[in-house]
Nucleic acid binder design. Sequence first.
DNA 1: CTCCAACTTAAAGTCCACTTGAAGGCAAGC
DNA 2: GCTTGCCTTCAAGTGGACTTTAAGTTGGAG
Lengths: 137, 137
Amino acid sequence: MPPMSISEVARQVGLQSSAIRYYEQIGLLPPAHRTSGQRHYDTSVLYRLAIVNRARQLGFTLDEIRQLFFGFGKVTPASTRWRALSEKKLSELNNLMDGIKTMQRLLRRMMTRCHCETMDQCGRGIFRSGKCLPITN
Amino acid sequence: MPPMSISEVARQVGLQSSAIRYYEQIGLLPPAHRTSGQRHYDTSVLYRLAIVNRARQLGFTLDEIRQLFFGFGKVTPASTRWRALSEKKLSELNNLMDGIKTMQRLLRRMMTRCHCETMDQCGRGIFRSGKCLPITN
DNA sequence: CTCCAACTTAAAGTCCACTTGAAGGCAAGC
DNA sequence: GCTTGCCTTCAAGTGGACTTTAAGTTGGAG
């Protein structure tokens, strides 16, 4: 297997070269081997980046992904690492969902129950009672 | 009703003074009356800010809130404005929900189905097949 | 008169995940 | 020897919604 250039790696994992340099910079990838300044990679970087991509798809931040790689004892199995982080993320996502559901409920209420003529009138209703009252009040 | 200072308004609507200045700066609030440089407000600003707060709670960006105020013909009723923007926002929220559900599904699959020992092994599985394969493979 | 709190402005900083730009290096092909 | 094309670094820009900072003004209490 010949070593790959940065753009070849980028192509294979569907990232931009600049993103890969950035990942190296923030310590998500180890410093690449260089010949006369230019980075060369072997296949292991593809696996590393596959994990990064998957983790991003799961909603993890780069910081959390760093935890995944470096935040555990060396002997901690990958599956254990995933489980620990996934549990936290799942509860975050649950909270996020609840927030969104609240927004949807309020939006639907606003759509059906607001009959205000002017924004000022609407604002008065919201300020006084938290609700947008019908014009008849 | 005596006019209020910016910090009094901030207190009543639960914002920081800097946020109110910022809203004025981006045109969400009209320029306030000033006596020797200092802003003074009457109650109408409370209504305006009640709407801004409510709209933010509903997931609208400041830009969308500006639409709510200024993006319609002068005679367009408030209720019509809300409905137009709410419909758009509801579909955005639906997309967001779908994304989150996908993440949750994938996270749960990852938690139950990943039995990898090393991250490298895990990455290989993801890279080759998109899945994190059991150690037996 | 002095001090303090509250106000003013403009500019810069924050977070996140990058991208873009400037300025330059290196190898191959013509 | 020149162009082309890919690479390098470092610094700065992006977006959204503000906050923070610096430097200065105003009004009132003591």
